[in-house]
Design a protein around this nucleic acid. Structure first.
Lengths: 143, 143
DNA sequence: GTGTGTGCAAACTATTTGCACGGTA
DNA sequence: TACCGTGCAAATAGTTTGCACACAC
């Protein structure tokens, strides 16, 4: 599970980049939150230390994505959601009604992936997929 | 194919709304474009007649969606893409590399849908799904 | 004539960019 | 010391809202 904590300093170093507190904070926040928007990451960091700018969060998320430490997915309203790249391959289930985000194993995509590749020559990127629908809670509660 | 052109005037009338040139233009543009952002719809209309405001396009798309004449899907970068509600159920394949948008029948979701419902009680809304990956063109051309 | 729909402009949210300063290496 | 990274503020993109006028009914 937590076997491969990303060696941030090393990765940065290897790319001629510098290790900074902000970068560690952003990476930690993403890891802690599971999946979160840039704004949510910013808020989480502000809860710990003051003075980290939202701009820096955006830039750092972008950087971390380039370094393949985090990845982003497009959920509902267009706010990209970031998560650890190690989590790549998990699929988001977004509830239309309550907005809850659940995750499933990409294994459920097995057949679909094969079909798309055969029928369309389309190489599905499972890690970037968001599925919409009604979650079990909402389904039970209402109507 | 074009058997069920939406009777816009009727639907509007039935809801106590008024028929206007703008509303017809927006609906026509969505139908003609297949899937397009609000801005693209606006541009398409401006190509025909001048003087239709982008604000009106947004408002009209929203209205047409309420009337179930069009629906929107979230593709890549956060700009919602509108299409005829009759097309609902088609699935978007978005290419990470070239941005091309292809469509497939929701039938390919058959098994997945069943799995999600059984495993998670999640009712998949196929019409709102966008899948990301590499399209056949990009796959062939470049590696 | 009456009230809805539209156009214009401004407000708003989310994100990006420019520039000077501060901190890492 | 040298240059990268950050903070601040302004710019940008996408979308929404307020208000007065115009048009559908």
């Amino acid at each position: 599970m937590s076997s491969d904590a990303p060696p941030l300093a090393e990765v940065l170093r290897a790319n001629g980049l510098r290790m900074t507190a902000q970068r560690q904070l952003v990476l930690d926040a993403v890891a802690a939150l599971g999946h979160a928007t840039a704004e949510q990451v910013h808020e989480a960091i502000c809860g710990k230390v003051a003075g980290v700018n939202i701009t820096t969060v955006y830039r750092t998320l972008d950087l971390l994505e380039t370094l393949n430490l985090v990845a982003h997915t497009h959920l509902s309203h267009g706010a990209p959601v970031y998560h650890l790249a190690g989590d790549r391959g998990h699929v988001h289930l977004v509830c239309h009604r309550c907005g809850a985000v659940d995750e499933v194993s990409p294994e459920v995509f097995g057949d679909l992936r094969r079909s798309l590749e055969e029928q369309r020559g389309f190489l599905l990127d499972v890690g970037h997929v968001a599925l919409f629908g009604i979650c079990s809670s909402c389904e039970t509660v209402n109507r």
